[in-house]
Design a protein around this nucleic acid. Structure first.
Lengths: 206, 206
DNA sequence: CGCGCGGGTGAGCGGTCGCTTAGGCTCGCG
DNA sequence: CGCGAGCCTAAGCGACCGCTCACCCGCGCG
């Protein structure tokens, strides 16, 4: 099994049965490559090694596949950001931690992240509303760290919501441009972005 | 005429005849709202107030409409960035200028910018290659300013290409999240982002 | 006046889409 | 052994897609 395929298997390990997992993995690849609307259910099924009809045994619609991907992805993103948000340590350490791991995830899983971050509008209104709620939580996690830093005097930020948005925006956009062919790997980009984020909040000595 | 419509008219003023311009404006709105693949030629034509067949009098295919939009948009983006890149003044002034006006354009014309920045993959391979070439030029413009700043000692940057990418990435992502309903207008976001960019390059006193 | 031409229409073609239906195979289990 | 549950397929339905065709209208001009 290729390293890529191995990684996909781990990422979606808790989806059963096997055929449903293969469909999700196939859908992530297809959606990331061509976008949700340009992907056909026939393409997803054939990537997963089955007939077009088999997809509908495991998922009611194509949109439900996207929802599944979006839900798991956002849950993971929220986990990644809330760990440093609730941790001990200086605001600078926690912000650096949050940005580093969030960026590393966007780089390492950039196919999944691309679907999660850029295909939101293809969700049904109900599913979309649910996901938007989770995104508010990720925003609150980062904003909390920055507020702590401002309160303690470690950060110098006048517009906290605006800076929060900018930091998150910078991280999310990694999914758009990151390529495994590029000069830097996920770890390098994560470290570099953690330093950039500290500069953006005016952390002393950054 | 609404302020929005007025702005669209100005943005595409040099496209003639009138019907072709109306089609471009309709296509930009439709592509931005639903994405290229989810937009039908019938929808574009009806927004422009004509029959589905009329579209093909002015454009050979739906993709040619996207190409037209992408080409004009990228030309404008390149203009905006190259003016401060080639101007006199300190690197800090020039970088702030470039980021401020680039961000302002992405906010003010966020519907156009969304199409220009996020529908690249829907272009034909030939058209895509041409646009990618223009994007390399925009990257070079910003990199030039940062290199000048590093050389003069005004900036403190170890990874110039990486930082260039991050600054551009931050600006481009404005098109994704900016909304006219939001708290800040294009000018406020532009000023705020210019300051953030100066911090990212470690400009003295930023 | 008649006539060509640029810009328009209604109808529709060939193809593909998301999804359904009818049926078949392969197990574990009483 | 029989038989139901779970998983899968071949075939195809109805809708809708990008795009084309045959035809029409108003206007400038010899």
């Amino acid at each position: 099994m290729s390293a890529q395929a191995q990684q996909s298997e781990e990422e979606w390990a808790d989806i059963a049965p096997d055929a449903a997992r293969r469909l999700v993995i196939a859908a992530v690849q297809a959606f990331a490559e061509r976008g949700y609307h340009a992907t056909t259910t026939r393409d997803i099924a054939s990537r997963a090694g089955m007939s077009p009809a088999a997809l509908y045994i495991h998922y009611k619609t194509k949109e439900e596949l996207l929802y599944q991907i979006s839900l798991v992805g956002h849950r993971l993103a929220l986990d990644i950001l809330e760990r440093p948000a609730l941790a001990d340590g200086s605001p600078a350490e926690r912000l650096a931690d949050a940005v580093r791991s969030f960026v590393r995830w966007h780089a390492e899983h950039h196919t999944t992240a691309r679907v999660v971050q850029y295909e939101l509008d293809a969700l049904s209104p109900e599913h979309r509303a649910e996901i938007v709620g989770m995104r508010r939580a990720t925003d609150a996690a980062v904003r909390g760290i920055i507020e702590d830093g401002v309160r303690s005097g470690d950060f110098d930020v006048t517009d906290v919501p605006g800076t929060t948005l900018a930091v998150l925006s910078l991280c999310i956009d990694v999914a758009r441009w990151f390529s495994t062919e590029g000069r830097r790997g996920p770890d390098e980009v994560g470290d570099s972005y953690a330093a950039l984020a500290l500069r953006m909040v005016g952390a002393a000595g950054a």
